[in-house]
Design a protein around this nucleic acid. Structure first.
Lengths: 202, 202
DNA sequence: ATTATCTATAGATCTATAGATAATGC
DNA sequence: ATTATCTATAGATCTATAGATAATGC
Protein backbone atom coordinates (compact mmCIF):
# COMPACT_ATOMS: atom_id res chain seq x y z
CA UNK A 1 0.00 0.00 0.00
CA UNK A 2 3.04 2.34 -0.14
CA UNK A 3 1.90 4.71 -2.85
CA UNK A 4 4.90 7.08 -2.80
CA UNK A 5 7.62 6.96 -5.44
CA UNK A 6 10.34 4.39 -4.83
CA UNK A 7 12.99 6.96 -5.49
CA UNK A 8 12.93 8.65 -2.09
CA UNK A 9 13.15 5.47 -0.04
CA UNK A 10 16.36 6.07 1.80
CA UNK A 11 15.38 9.48 3.07
CA UNK A 12 11.88 8.32 3.89
CA UNK A 13 13.25 5.28 5.70
CA UNK A 14 15.37 7.45 7.95
CA UNK A 15 12.41 9.72 8.64
CA UNK A 16 10.21 6.75 9.47
CA UNK A 17 12.86 5.29 11.73
CA UNK A 18 13.15 8.63 13.54
CA UNK A 19 9.39 8.79 13.92
CA UNK A 20 9.39 5.30 15.40
CA UNK A 21 12.16 6.25 17.78
CA UNK A 22 10.25 9.31 18.98
CA UNK A 23 7.13 7.21 19.62
CA UNK A 24 9.18 4.64 21.51
CA UNK A 25 10.92 7.26 23.61
CA UNK A 26 7.54 8.90 24.36
CA UNK A 27 6.12 5.49 25.18
CA UNK A 28 8.69 5.18 27.97
CA UNK A 29 8.91 8.79 29.17
CA UNK A 30 5.15 9.35 29.40
CA UNK A 31 4.89 6.28 31.63
CA UNK A 32 7.79 7.43 33.79
CA UNK A 33 6.74 11.06 34.22
CA UNK A 34 3.13 11.39 33.09
CA UNK A 35 1.80 13.19 30.03
CA UNK A 36 2.37 16.58 31.66
CA UNK A 37 5.68 15.61 33.23
CA UNK A 38 7.79 15.62 30.08
CA UNK A 39 8.18 18.35 27.45
CA UNK A 40 8.63 18.02 23.71
CA UNK A 41 12.19 19.30 23.89
CA UNK A 42 13.28 16.49 26.20
CA UNK A 43 11.21 13.94 24.29
CA UNK A 44 12.96 14.83 21.03
CA UNK A 45 16.33 14.99 22.75
CA UNK A 46 15.71 11.44 23.99
CA UNK A 47 15.38 10.41 20.34
CA UNK A 48 18.56 12.31 19.40
CA UNK A 49 16.64 15.08 17.63
CA UNK A 50 15.77 18.73 18.26
CA UNK A 51 12.29 19.97 19.13
CA UNK A 52 11.85 21.88 15.87
CA UNK A 53 11.27 18.79 13.80
CA UNK A 54 8.44 17.57 15.99
CA UNK A 55 5.55 19.16 14.12
CA UNK A 56 6.66 17.81 10.76
CA UNK A 57 6.18 14.31 12.22
CA UNK A 58 3.22 14.78 14.59
CA UNK A 59 0.13 16.93 14.65
CA UNK A 60 0.45 17.84 18.32
CA UNK A 61 1.62 16.52 21.65
CA UNK A 62 -1.81 14.96 22.07
CA UNK A 63 -1.33 13.11 18.78
CA UNK A 64 1.95 11.68 20.04
CA UNK A 65 0.34 10.77 23.36
CA UNK A 66 -2.31 8.77 21.52
CA UNK A 67 0.27 6.99 19.34
CA UNK A 68 2.56 6.22 22.26
CA UNK A 69 -0.35 5.00 24.39
CA UNK A 70 -1.50 2.68 21.62
CA UNK A 71 1.95 1.24 21.26
CA UNK A 72 2.31 0.79 25.01
CA UNK A 73 -1.05 -0.94 25.39
CA UNK A 74 -0.41 -3.23 22.43
CA UNK A 75 2.98 -4.19 23.77
CA UNK A 76 1.46 -4.92 27.18
CA UNK A 77 -1.23 -7.13 25.62
CA UNK A 78 1.40 -9.01 23.60
CA UNK A 79 3.38 -9.65 26.76
CA UNK A 80 0.33 -11.18 28.43
CA UNK A 81 -0.32 -13.33 25.37
CA UNK A 82 3.23 -14.57 25.19
CA UNK A 83 3.72 -15.45 28.87
CA UNK A 84 0.31 -17.15 28.91
CA UNK A 85 1.03 -19.10 25.72
CA UNK A 86 4.41 -20.31 26.88
CA UNK A 87 3.42 -21.61 30.31
CA UNK A 88 1.60 -24.74 31.48
CA UNK A 89 -0.23 -22.58 34.03
CA UNK A 90 -1.11 -19.45 32.01
CA UNK A 91 -3.00 -17.62 34.76
CA UNK A 92 -0.18 -18.14 37.23
CA UNK A 93 2.26 -16.92 34.60
CA UNK A 94 0.32 -13.69 34.06
CA UNK A 95 0.02 -13.19 37.81
CA UNK A 96 3.75 -13.79 38.29
CA UNK A 97 4.49 -11.22 35.60
CA UNK A 98 2.03 -8.60 36.73
CA UNK A 99 1.65 -8.79 40.50
CA UNK A 100 5.38 -8.89 41.10
CA UNK A 101 7.91 -6.63 42.73
CA UNK A 102 9.66 -6.46 39.39
CA UNK A 103 6.61 -4.96 37.69
CA UNK A 104 6.08 -2.60 40.61
CA UNK A 105 9.58 -1.19 40.01
CA UNK A 106 9.36 -1.04 36.20
CA UNK A 107 7.62 2.31 35.96
CA UNK A 108 8.83 3.07 32.44
CA UNK A 109 8.22 -0.34 30.92
CA UNK A 110 5.31 -1.68 32.97
CA UNK A 111 1.56 -1.65 32.40
CA UNK A 112 0.36 1.72 31.01
CA UNK A 113 -2.89 1.37 32.93
CA UNK A 114 -0.90 1.50 36.15
CA UNK A 115 1.61 4.11 35.03
CA UNK A 116 -0.98 6.44 33.48
CA UNK A 117 -4.39 5.25 34.68
CA UNK A 118 -5.53 8.38 36.48
CA UNK A 119 -3.84 10.60 33.87
CA UNK A 120 -5.57 8.72 31.07
CA UNK A 121 -8.99 9.39 32.57
CA UNK A 122 -8.34 13.13 32.13
CA UNK A 123 -7.20 12.93 28.51
CA UNK A 124 -9.00 13.63 25.24
CA UNK A 125 -11.07 10.84 23.64
CA UNK A 126 -8.25 10.38 21.08
CA UNK A 127 -5.86 9.44 23.87
CA UNK A 128 -8.40 7.41 25.84
CA UNK A 129 -9.32 5.29 22.83
CA UNK A 130 -6.07 3.28 22.75
CA UNK A 131 -6.41 2.69 26.49
CA UNK A 132 -9.94 1.43 25.99
CA UNK A 133 -8.87 -0.86 23.15
CA UNK A 134 -6.06 -2.14 25.34
CA UNK A 135 -8.42 -2.78 28.25
CA UNK A 136 -10.68 -4.81 25.97
CA UNK A 137 -7.72 -6.83 24.71
CA UNK A 138 -6.53 -7.51 28.25
CA UNK A 139 -10.04 -8.58 29.24
CA UNK A 140 -10.13 -11.07 26.37
CA UNK A 141 -6.88 -12.64 27.52
CA UNK A 142 -8.16 -12.92 31.08
CA UNK A 143 -11.53 -14.28 29.97
CA UNK A 144 -9.78 -17.27 28.41
CA UNK A 145 -8.10 -17.98 31.70
CA UNK A 146 -11.28 -18.10 33.79
CA UNK A 147 -12.41 -21.60 34.83
CA UNK A 148 -15.98 -20.82 33.88
CA UNK A 149 -18.05 -22.03 30.97
CA UNK A 150 -20.67 -19.28 30.86
CA UNK A 151 -19.40 -16.48 28.65
CA UNK A 152 -21.08 -13.58 30.45
CA UNK A 153 -19.90 -14.87 33.77
CA UNK A 154 -16.33 -15.25 32.53
CA UNK A 155 -16.44 -11.70 31.16
CA UNK A 156 -17.56 -10.42 34.57
CA UNK A 157 -14.80 -12.33 36.32
CA UNK A 158 -12.25 -10.96 33.87
CA UNK A 159 -13.34 -7.37 34.58
CA UNK A 160 -13.02 -7.91 38.31
CA UNK A 161 -9.63 -9.58 37.91
CA UNK A 162 -8.24 -6.80 35.72
CA UNK A 163 -9.52 -4.11 38.10
CA UNK A 164 -7.94 -5.93 41.01
CA UNK A 165 -4.61 -6.31 39.26
CA UNK A 166 -4.40 -2.70 38.04
CA UNK A 167 -5.51 -1.35 41.41
CA UNK A 168 -3.07 -3.51 43.34
CA UNK A 169 0.03 -2.47 41.39
CA UNK A 170 -1.09 1.17 41.48
CA UNK A 171 -1.48 1.10 45.26
CA UNK A 172 1.74 -0.88 45.69
CA UNK A 173 3.63 1.89 43.89
CA UNK A 174 2.19 4.60 46.10
CA UNK A 175 3.10 2.86 49.35
CA UNK A 176 6.46 3.71 50.85
CA UNK A 177 5.97 0.97 53.47
CA UNK A 178 7.53 -1.84 51.46
CA UNK A 179 6.28 -4.66 53.66
CA UNK A 180 2.70 -3.51 53.25
CA UNK A 181 3.28 -3.04 49.54
CA UNK A 182 4.57 -6.61 49.23
CA UNK A 183 1.68 -8.04 51.23
CA UNK A 184 -0.79 -6.15 49.08
CA UNK A 185 0.63 -7.72 45.91
CA UNK A 186 0.48 -11.17 47.51
CA UNK A 187 -3.09 -10.68 48.68
CA UNK A 188 -4.09 -9.55 45.20
CA UNK A 189 -2.42 -12.57 43.58
CA UNK A 190 -4.25 -14.97 45.89
CA UNK A 191 -7.58 -13.27 45.23
CA UNK A 192 -7.16 -13.23 41.45
CA UNK A 193 -6.68 -17.00 41.60
CA UNK A 194 -9.81 -17.38 43.70
CA UNK A 195 -11.81 -15.27 41.26
CA UNK A 196 -10.58 -17.34 38.32
CA UNK A 197 -11.31 -20.62 40.12
CA UNK A 198 -14.73 -19.75 41.53
CA UNK A 199 -17.68 -21.61 40.04
CA UNK A 200 -20.95 -20.44 41.55
CA UNK A 201 -22.23 -16.90 41.37
CA UNK A 202 -25.45 -14.88 41.68
CA UNK B 1 -1.47 25.42 72.17
CA UNK B 2 -1.82 28.83 70.43
CA UNK B 3 1.28 30.61 71.67
CA UNK B 4 0.92 33.86 69.72
CA UNK B 5 -0.35 37.08 71.30
CA UNK B 6 -4.14 37.34 71.45
CA UNK B 7 -3.99 40.81 70.02
CA UNK B 8 -3.57 39.86 66.39
CA UNK B 9 -6.42 37.39 66.31
CA UNK B 10 -8.62 38.97 63.65
CA UNK B 11 -5.86 39.31 61.09
CA UNK B 12 -4.56 35.84 61.86
CA UNK B 13 -8.04 34.41 61.59
CA UNK B 14 -8.48 35.84 58.11
CA UNK B 15 -5.08 34.50 57.09
CA UNK B 16 -5.92 31.08 58.45
CA UNK B 17 -9.25 31.06 56.68
CA UNK B 18 -7.52 31.99 53.42
CA UNK B 19 -5.01 29.23 53.92
CA UNK B 20 -7.82 26.75 54.47
CA UNK B 21 -9.57 27.96 51.34
CA UNK B 22 -6.43 27.52 49.27
CA UNK B 23 -5.99 23.97 50.55
CA UNK B 24 -9.62 23.17 49.80
CA UNK B 25 -9.42 24.62 46.31
CA UNK B 26 -6.21 22.68 45.68
CA UNK B 27 -7.87 19.57 47.07
CA UNK B 28 -10.47 19.80 44.30
CA UNK B 29 -8.36 21.13 41.42
CA UNK B 30 -5.51 18.66 41.85
CA UNK B 31 -8.03 15.83 41.62
CA UNK B 32 -9.68 17.32 38.55
CA UNK B 33 -6.53 18.16 36.61
CA UNK B 34 -3.61 16.34 38.24
CA UNK B 35 -0.72 17.87 40.18
CA UNK B 36 0.90 19.10 36.96
CA UNK B 37 -2.37 20.17 35.38
CA UNK B 38 -3.02 23.26 37.48
CA UNK B 39 -0.71 26.22 38.17
CA UNK B 40 -0.34 28.27 41.31
CA UNK B 41 -1.86 31.33 39.65
CA UNK B 42 -5.12 29.52 38.91
CA UNK B 43 -5.08 27.78 42.30
CA UNK B 44 -4.84 31.12 44.10
CA UNK B 45 -7.39 32.70 41.80
CA UNK B 46 -9.76 29.90 42.73
CA UNK B 47 -9.39 31.00 46.34
CA UNK B 48 -9.95 34.66 45.40
CA UNK B 49 -6.29 35.57 45.94
CA UNK B 50 -3.28 36.43 43.77
CA UNK B 51 -0.31 34.14 43.26
CA UNK B 52 2.14 36.45 45.06
CA UNK B 53 0.83 35.55 48.50
CA UNK B 54 1.32 31.84 47.98
CA UNK B 55 4.80 31.53 49.42
CA UNK B 56 3.92 33.36 52.62
CA UNK B 57 1.45 30.55 53.29
CA UNK B 58 3.16 27.48 51.82
CA UNK B 59 6.74 26.34 51.40
CA UNK B 60 6.27 25.15 47.84
CA UNK B 61 3.76 23.63 45.46
CA UNK B 62 4.86 20.22 46.73
CA UNK B 63 4.03 21.32 50.28
CA UNK B 64 0.52 22.29 49.18
CA UNK B 65 0.16 19.02 47.27
CA UNK B 66 0.96 17.10 50.46
CA UNK B 67 -1.49 19.15 52.55
CA UNK B 68 -4.27 18.89 49.97
CA UNK B 69 -3.70 15.17 49.54
CA UNK B 70 -3.91 14.61 53.28
CA UNK B 71 -7.14 16.54 53.47
CA UNK B 72 -8.58 14.65 50.51
CA UNK B 73 -7.67 11.24 51.90
CA UNK B 74 -9.00 12.06 55.35
CA UNK B 75 -12.25 13.30 53.91
CA UNK B 76 -12.59 10.13 51.83
CA UNK B 77 -11.99 7.95 54.89
CA UNK B 78 -14.58 9.90 56.89
CA UNK B 79 -17.10 9.38 54.11
CA UNK B 80 -16.57 5.63 54.24
CA UNK B 81 -16.91 5.66 58.02
CA UNK B 82 -20.11 7.63 57.96
CA UNK B 83 -21.94 5.67 55.25
CA UNK B 84 -20.88 2.41 56.91
CA UNK B 85 -21.96 3.59 60.36
CA UNK B 86 -25.36 4.78 59.20
CA UNK B 87 -26.43 1.69 57.29
CA UNK B 88 -27.72 -1.74 58.34
CA UNK B 89 -25.57 -3.25 55.57
CA UNK B 90 -22.31 -1.30 55.87
CA UNK B 91 -20.41 -3.14 53.12
CA UNK B 92 -23.24 -2.65 50.66
CA UNK B 93 -23.38 1.01 51.62
CA UNK B 94 -19.67 1.50 50.89
CA UNK B 95 -20.03 -0.38 47.60
CA UNK B 96 -23.03 1.73 46.62
CA UNK B 97 -21.08 4.88 47.36
CA UNK B 98 -17.87 3.86 45.67
CA UNK B 99 -18.65 1.57 42.74
CA UNK B 100 -21.34 3.86 41.41
CA UNK B 101 -21.84 5.92 38.29
CA UNK B 102 -22.06 8.96 40.55
CA UNK B 103 -18.58 8.40 41.91
CA UNK B 104 -17.25 7.70 38.44
CA UNK B 105 -18.44 11.17 37.39
CA UNK B 106 -17.27 13.03 40.50
CA UNK B 107 -13.69 13.59 39.42
CA UNK B 108 -13.14 16.60 41.65
CA UNK B 109 -14.74 15.26 44.78
CA UNK B 110 -14.25 11.50 44.48
CA UNK B 111 -11.60 9.17 45.84
CA UNK B 112 -8.10 10.69 45.57
CA UNK B 113 -6.64 7.23 44.94
CA UNK B 114 -8.64 7.06 41.73
CA UNK B 115 -8.20 10.70 40.71
CA UNK B 116 -4.47 10.80 41.44
CA UNK B 117 -3.31 7.20 41.86
CA UNK B 118 -0.78 7.02 39.06
CA UNK B 119 0.29 10.63 39.68
CA UNK B 120 0.80 9.90 43.37
CA UNK B 121 3.19 7.05 42.61
CA UNK B 122 5.50 9.57 40.92
CA UNK B 123 5.46 12.13 43.73
CA UNK B 124 7.93 12.85 46.51
CA UNK B 125 7.73 10.85 49.75
CA UNK B 126 6.15 13.91 51.42
CA UNK B 127 3.21 13.72 49.02
CA UNK B 128 3.01 9.93 49.01
CA UNK B 129 2.84 9.76 52.81
CA UNK B 130 -0.72 11.12 53.12
CA UNK B 131 -1.81 8.68 50.43
CA UNK B 132 -0.22 5.83 52.32
CA UNK B 133 -1.86 6.88 55.58
CA UNK B 134 -5.18 7.13 53.76
CA UNK B 135 -4.76 3.68 52.23
CA UNK B 136 -4.13 2.23 55.71
CA UNK B 137 -7.24 3.97 57.06
CA UNK B 138 -9.36 2.67 54.18
CA UNK B 139 -8.02 -0.84 54.77
CA UNK B 140 -9.04 -0.67 58.43
CA UNK B 141 -12.59 0.27 57.51
CA UNK B 142 -12.79 -2.59 54.99
CA UNK B 143 -11.24 -5.06 57.41
CA UNK B 144 -14.12 -4.52 59.81
CA UNK B 145 -16.55 -5.35 57.05
CA UNK B 146 -15.02 -8.71 56.14
CA UNK B 147 -16.97 -11.77 57.33
CA UNK B 148 -13.83 -13.42 58.59
CA UNK B 149 -12.59 -13.97 62.11
CA UNK B 150 -8.90 -14.45 61.43
CA UNK B 151 -7.21 -11.05 61.55
CA UNK B 152 -4.49 -11.71 58.98
CA UNK B 153 -6.99 -13.21 56.61
CA UNK B 154 -9.33 -10.23 56.97
CA UNK B 155 -6.42 -7.88 56.32
CA UNK B 156 -5.59 -9.76 53.11
CA UNK B 157 -9.19 -9.66 51.96
CA UNK B 158 -9.34 -5.92 52.69
CA UNK B 159 -6.26 -5.28 50.54
CA UNK B 160 -7.74 -7.23 47.65
CA UNK B 161 -11.09 -5.46 48.02
CA UNK B 162 -9.52 -1.99 48.07
CA UNK B 163 -7.34 -2.77 45.05
CA UNK B 164 -10.37 -4.03 43.18
CA UNK B 165 -12.44 -0.98 44.03
CA UNK B 166 -9.74 1.57 43.15
CA UNK B 167 -8.86 -0.27 39.95
CA UNK B 168 -12.47 -0.61 38.86
CA UNK B 169 -13.33 3.09 39.20
CA UNK B 170 -10.03 4.06 37.54
CA UNK B 171 -10.74 1.82 34.54
CA UNK B 172 -14.37 2.89 34.42
CA UNK B 173 -13.24 6.53 34.04
CA UNK B 174 -10.90 5.72 31.18
CA UNK B 175 -13.53 3.84 29.16
CA UNK B 176 -15.53 5.87 26.67
CA UNK B 177 -17.75 2.85 26.02
CA UNK B 178 -20.30 3.58 28.74
CA UNK B 179 -21.98 0.20 28.66
CA UNK B 180 -18.70 -1.55 29.27
CA UNK B 181 -17.85 0.99 31.96
CA UNK B 182 -21.16 0.27 33.71
CA UNK B 183 -20.73 -3.49 33.49
CA UNK B 184 -17.24 -3.19 34.90
CA UNK B 185 -18.52 -1.36 37.98
CA UNK B 186 -21.25 -3.97 38.44
CA UNK B 187 -18.81 -6.85 38.09
CA UNK B 188 -16.51 -5.22 40.63
CA UNK B 189 -19.35 -4.72 43.10
CA UNK B 190 -20.39 -8.37 42.85
CA UNK B 191 -16.84 -9.54 43.33
CA UNK B 192 -16.16 -7.32 46.35
CA UNK B 193 -19.18 -8.90 48.02
CA UNK B 194 -17.87 -12.38 47.21
CA UNK B 195 -14.46 -11.48 48.65
CA UNK B 196 -16.04 -10.18 51.84
CA UNK B 197 -18.30 -13.20 52.20
CA UNK B 198 -15.73 -15.89 51.42
CA UNK B 199 -14.74 -18.13 54.31
CA UNK B 200 -12.12 -20.63 53.24
CA UNK B 201 -8.71 -19.66 51.91
CA UNK B 202 -5.22 -21.14 51.37
C1' DA C 1 14.05 20.00 -6.56
C1' DT C 2 12.55 17.89 -2.65
C1' DT C 3 12.26 17.33 2.06
C1' DA C 4 13.92 15.95 6.90
C1' DT C 5 15.81 18.28 10.31
C1' DC C 6 17.96 22.29 12.18
C1' DT C 7 18.23 26.99 14.61
C1' DA C 8 15.68 30.61 16.26
C1' DT C 9 11.80 32.58 18.14
C1' DA C 10 6.85 33.83 19.50
C1' DG C 11 3.87 34.04 23.07
C1' DA C 12 2.05 31.78 26.98
C1' DT C 13 2.74 29.73 31.21
C1' DC C 14 5.38 27.80 35.10
C1' DT C 15 7.48 28.24 40.09
C1' DA C 16 9.44 31.36 43.00
C1' DT C 17 10.99 35.97 44.88
C1' DA C 18 11.22 41.11 45.92
C1' DG C 19 9.41 44.89 47.46
C1' DA C 20 4.99 47.96 47.70
C1' DT C 21 0.53 48.56 49.83
C1' DA C 22 -3.04 48.57 52.98
C1' DA C 23 -5.28 47.11 56.97
C1' DT C 24 -5.14 46.10 61.82
C1' DG C 25 -3.42 46.73 66.69
C1' DC C 26 -0.27 49.27 69.71
C1' DA D 1 4.64 48.55 63.97
C1' DT D 2 3.22 44.44 62.18
C1' DT D 3 1.89 41.54 58.68
C1' DA D 4 -1.33 39.55 54.99
C1' DT D 5 -1.76 40.26 50.54
C1' DC D 6 -0.82 42.83 46.46
C1' DT D 7 1.73 44.10 41.97
C1' DA D 8 5.59 43.26 39.38
C1' DT D 9 9.13 40.54 37.75
C1' DA D 10 12.96 36.97 37.17
C1' DG D 11 14.26 33.16 34.85
C1' DA D 12 12.94 28.78 33.21
C1' DT D 13 10.01 26.09 30.58
C1' DC D 14 5.93 25.02 27.71
C1' DT D 15 3.68 24.16 22.85
C1' DA D 16 3.86 25.61 18.36
C1' DT D 17 5.62 28.00 14.11
C1' DA D 18 8.86 30.18 10.60
C1' DG D 19 12.36 30.00 7.83
C1' DA D 20 17.39 28.29 7.13
C1' DT D 21 20.28 24.36 6.13
C1' DA D 22 21.91 20.23 4.36
C1' DA D 23 21.44 15.91 2.33
C1' DT D 24 19.44 13.02 -1.18
C1' DG D 25 17.55 12.05 -5.93
C1' DC D 26 16.48 13.91 -10.48
Amino acid sequence: MRSGPKTLTSKILVAEANRETVINVANRLFRERGFDGIGLKDLMKGAGLTQGGFYKQFESKDDLAALASRRAMESATRRWFSVAASSPDPLQAVINLYLSRGHRGETGDGCPLVALGSDAARQSPDVRKPFQDGIKAHLQVLEELMAIKDHDEAAHKAMAALSLMVGAVTLSRILTDQKLSDRLLEAAAAEVKRIAASEQDD
